[in-house]
Design a protein around this nucleic acid. Sequence first.
DNA 1: GAATAATTTTAGATTAATCTAAAAATTAGT
DNA 2: ACTAATTTTTAGATTAATCTAAAATTATTC
Lengths: 219, 219
Amino acid sequence: MTSFTEENYLKVIYKLSSETDSEVSTNAVAEQTQTKAASVSDMLRKLSEKKLVSYQKYQGVRLTAEGEKVALKVIRKHRLWEVFLVEKLGFNWDEVHDIAEELEHIDSEKLVAKLDEYLGFPSFDPHGDPIPDHHGVMPAQTYLTLAEIKKGEEVIMMGVSEHSSAFLQYLDKINLVLGTSIEVLDINNFDKSLQIILSQENSLFITHEVSKNILVKVQ
Amino acid sequence: MTSFTEENYLKVIYKLSSETDSEVSTNAVAEQTQTKAASVSDMLRKLSEKKLVSYQKYQGVRLTAEGEKVALKVIRKHRLWEVFLVEKLGFNWDEVHDIAEELEHIDSEKLVAKLDEYLGFPSFDPHGDPIPDHHGVMPAQTYLTLAEIKKGEEVIMMGVSEHSSAFLQYLDKINLVLGTSIEVLDINNFDKSLQIILSQENSLFITHEVSKNILVKVQ
DNA sequence: GAATAATTTTAGATTAATCTAAAAATTAGT
DNA sequence: ACTAATTTTTAGATTAATCTAAAATTATTC
Ligand SMILES: [Mn+2]
Ligand SMILES: [Mn+2]
Ligand SMILES: [Mn+2]
Ligand SMILES: [Mn+2]
């Protein structure tokens, strides 16, 4: 059995590991879990004994196949619950993360299966993140960031890579929501800010910091 | 803040207290929480310091108004989630208790409010137990047990006071479900077993042990 | 290729929740 | 009203998860 705490560590290691595609450092885990490096060292030793991570002192950590399986199950639950909260209960996309952070640890295969079915087997969560299926397989998803799009191109918004409430509420305010069509009108070479036009209607400016965190696909 | 564990203790004290309407003994709590009396003593001291129970050594324990408020919130969440699991996800009434036992600790006023609304503000859970409202007020509910009904009377099944999977599955098997009309055809004076007839169809025998755990209302 | 800086681990404590065994208090039986 | 039985509390340990401070290791820089 994996505890609440262990599951959160595994999820963090999964996330950091898939970003860099290499060993994850103790400090990186400490930052993400909001703990201290000393606590992380202890936990890594423990997870290693449980064969959920492969870990050599001072050499960083990776998930084992078993550890990845557990992480993917938790991520699956997190994202399914987020879909439920938004689609069924009417929450806004900026309100669901913390609640899903608790719901994700509830342990019942049958519950997950029935929830998945009730939601119509969704492939993406309200932030555009892919939902692993029953076997832990992530739907394919090859997006670019809006910052990578060339002047004149038109794309569709598919997700975000920053999940803070502040960022999501800002996107709401400027009507940048999933599915929106975005045309890049102009790129400022000095600060990489963009002038864009949404669904052939209103034009607006966004900073490079914002465009980097918006995931899009070319039509 | 109240922990998982504290909430479970408060719920147990609430339950035992409302059954006997007096102070609850350490041993009774230990039995219900599946712990030892020594652990309960410790916890009662702690809950007492937090002003959630009034407790004098050796004299048993009671909830304070604040403790009762917390207990009722947890019970409200437990029962709302049970309704969700049965009504929306299609679980059977004997499968939902353990899952609700985890869901009940998720802490979000907004989640509870939205869930309540989504379910249509139900007053009773799938076992016929009353759901406290937003202010902690329990719907009125003055049922008799089937064991108290006289020969020849006809009643409607409104709930159960035993929640084990075995008992609920047995009731399913004999078609004794909430809302069923029950007529007491005969009472065996020796062992208090009953011959009953359901919704003017099949007649069957049930033991006193069973009839004691079935809650009914006279039409 | 040392010396210094940064990172990581260990040592030793703390807090919450639990246990067993022993001591204390209450209740019951004569 | 004692004594015996039962219940409850305390004492002392244990386990999981965390922390701070110190030691050990690895990385960087001149
Ligand atoms: Mn979590
Ligand atoms: Mn998400
Ligand atoms: Mn519980
Ligand atoms: Mn119930």
